[in-house]
């Protein structure tokens, strides 16, 4: 018996799991810290320390205070509620609305498809951030409005994505089988077309949530999103930006880092889901 030859290497299937777990852990830590923020700090997020503004990190304030005399550590923790909340809720609304549009357009086709997709074209004709700026300027900056902004700028992409999937799925013989079984159009869509068209959405949504956080922070930085005194990372960076030049790094750098870590968490999660979807296809 001759010796055994190993041909190349198999792609590690565990890679996907590592990505998904790492991403999830990062996001869970940030989310838990935001939810249990009052337990981790003595200061309220908008509480002003009468003893001073721009105090450097030290025993009383682990990350110092900002120009308004508010505790940076406390604001950092509390900001997660708004940032994660608005981003996730906005993307969730975008997924639901976009999927519904894409489903109807893709399955019915014809003029319905034409009309819906031209509307989508109009939305997609603008760069996401410019569109977000315009919509935010139009509707104002309450929490609900910001969720609507995030949803409005992201929904068209889902509509397009789902529509493309639906157009493939509707040609499959299981859909034909369902139609000939006497199922109603709604029944076919709900039981067969929808569940089989969501794979790409599952992959894109987490990545999208990361981008949505950046959009939100960007809006806030420009004063069109969440505004001080409410705790939000983009707004914190904006408020602290003049200080950085003066060497007072603690007001801007920590929220920037947390933002980076969150976006990284979402990206890892999305990449992992994509790897897993591809592994399944092989």
């Amino acid at each position: 018996m001759s010796e055994t030859v190993v041909v190349g290497t198999a792609r590690a299937g565990r890679f996907a799991t590592v990505l998904i777990v790492t991403g999830s852990v990062i996001l869970a830590v940030v989310a838990l810290a935001a939810v249990f923020a009052p337990l981790l700090t003595g200061w309220g997020p908008t509480e002003i320390d009468p003893l001073g503004t721009l105090v450097p990190p030290g025993p009383g304030h682990p990350l110092g205070t900002d120009a308004n005399g508010m505790d940076v550590w406390s604001r950092l923790l509390h900001a997660g509620r708004l940032d994660l909340g608005i981003a996730v809720a906005g993307v969730a609304v975008a997924v639901v609305a976009g999927t519904a549009l894409g489903l109807v357009a893709g399955y019915l086709g014809g003029w319905v498809d034409d009309v819906l997709m031209r509307v989508v074209d109009v939305f997609q004709a603008f760069p996401t951030f410019i569109l977000a700026l315009a919509v935010a300027a139009l509707v104002g900056n309450g929490t609900g409005n910001l969720i609507a902004v995030i949803a409005a700028v992201n929904a068209p992409a889902y509509a397009r994505l789902v529509r493309a999937e639906v157009r493939t799925v509707r040609e499959s013989s299981f859909v034909a089988a369902s139609v000939t079984s006497g199922a109603s159009t709604f029944g076919v869509l709900w039981r067969h077309v929808l569940p089989n068209s969501l794979t790409p959405v599952r992959v894109i949504a987490p990545l999208n949530a990361g981008w949505a956080m950046l959009t939100l922070a960007g809006l806030s930085f420009l004063g069109l999103g969440v505004t001080v005194p409410a705790a939000e990372w983009g707004a914190m960076i904006s408020l602290g930006s003049p200080d950085v030049v003066a060497g007072r790094w603690w007001t801007s750098v920590p929220p920037g880092l947390v933002l980076l870590i969150c976006v990284l968490g979402f990206s890892l999660l999305g990449e992992g889901l994509q790897e897993r979807a591809e592994a399944k296809r092989r």
Partner: peptide, 8 residues
């Protein structure tokens, strides 16, 4: 042969 196969 697919990557990761053992051939003898």
């Amino acid at each position: 042969l697919p990557g990761g196969s053992l051939a003898s």
